[in-house]
Design a protein around this nucleic acid. Structure first.
Lengths: 223, 223
DNA sequence: TTAGAATGTGAGTGAGCGCTCACGTTCTCA
DNA sequence: TGAGAACGTGAGCGCTCACTCACATTCTAA
């Protein structure tokens, strides 16, 4: 019984050489995106770079959109797996240690392959227009949520979902901004420290110095 | 003596109707971007929407890139002016008050016209490819830097440039993420509070409460 | 051995794009 | 008032693109 092809595929490859063709097409796409950007990635050019004919490309991918979507899915699946693998052993660590390690990891990934990360990141809005399922974002969100939930009682934010939203997007956005605007920051240990301070300063309960906590909350609400 | 046309223009309009044509073209471009996205914004379509002919479009704009650039410049000049206008009276306010007001302002702007802001934001990478000068980002950066500099002694971060980079990108990115992923947050007063807490928690010196500083750090390390 | 399924080919199609140019129309000013 | 500058027009050019299809080659399994 044939496996159902995912929506980004046309036919599933059944022989080895077909699988090789698929892979060649995907990696060629990545290579061109990386080298010359999305505008340069025409289907003919991709086929040429992969060493196959356009026809073969359309055997396995229903459209250019489908091809780019498939590439994106592959990349995000890998990224998410890496993130999860890094997260698991940190579950028992103190929050500051865990956070610093996670931030360091995100930045390392960006630093390893800044150009491809940038291109794929900038492709996201286009894919939203094509109706890309946001399953990976949601899974990432849930991972961080599960990580934070057990310690949430001791932390300042009251709304867990919003806190996770803020944390995930902050780290993601700042490391991406660094890639495009300040690549030197990716090498600077201080940048990791500052991101960590940002995140921890957000989560840490406000110093309940002189005033009782309830009053402190009211003050916040009125400011 | 004729005014020099900016690099995004071909000829400067000299009569009133020409100026009207220019404006019509720019607003038509914005309308189409807003309604159907960049892919739908062909020059013929823009001209049609503006009620002029393609020829007229190319009288005033040297290329499609130039047209989009001009629109972007108009939008960013307005945004920057608004931001600066909001910033000036806050110079003398306490930091928490000023920060909350600024964040509220950024979010309000996004909320007013979320779709256009989103489209233009997503156009930025493309324009970087076209060699867009980043003068507005730099000006924004310098504004915030000048705002923060006088109080910097009392704050935790040691590197002013990096702090400004982090603050500007955090607020910008989070309000943009809210537009695309959680529009409900734009209406939620708690979101402004949390962004403010994020920013202030980052800037605030670490609490040196009752215990000596080293112990306080250890407590934090254990939470 | 061989039928037919799976895989691979690439010249060609039609649609849409950015942009031009030869030509009208309207305005300005001496 | 009329000459020339400024403004406006839109059919259509040249080109690139995503994608197809008639056909060739290779593999599988009975």
């Amino acid at each position: 019984m044939p496996r159902r092809p995912p929506p980004s595929r046309r036919r599933a490859p059944r022989q080895e050489r077909a699988q090789a063709t698929c892979d060649a097409i995907l990696t060629a796409t990545a290579r061109i995106l990386l080298k010359d950007g999305y505008e340069a990635a025409s289907t003919n050019r991709i086929a040429q770079e992969a060493g196959v004919s356009v026809g073969s490309l359309y055997q396995y991918f229903p459209s250019k959109e489908g091809l780019v979507t498939a590439l994106m899915e592959r990349h995000r699946a890998q990224g998410l797996a890496d993130f999860e693998a890094g997260l698991v052993p940190l579950a028992s660590q103190p929050l500051p240690v865990a956070m610093r390690a996670l931030i360091q990891q995100v930045i390392s990934v960006k630093r390893e392959n800044p150009k491809l990360n940038q291109v794929l990141h900038e492709l996201k809005p286009r894919m939203r227009q094509w109706g890309l399922s946001d399953a990976y974002s949601q899974r990432l969100f849930r991972l961080v949520r599960a990580f934070l939930a057990p310690r949430f009682e001791e932390l300042r934010p009251q709304n867990l979902d919003m806190a996770v939203f803020i944390l995930v997007n902050t780290v993601e956005a700042l490391s991406h901004s660094a890639v495009t605007e300040r690549p030197d920051y990716l090498e600077d240990p201080l940048f990791v420290e500052e991101l960590t301070a940002l995140v921890l300063g957000y989560l840490r309960p406000e110093p309940a110095t002189s005033a009782p906590r309830r009053t402190a909350r009211e003050r916040v609400a009125r400011m």
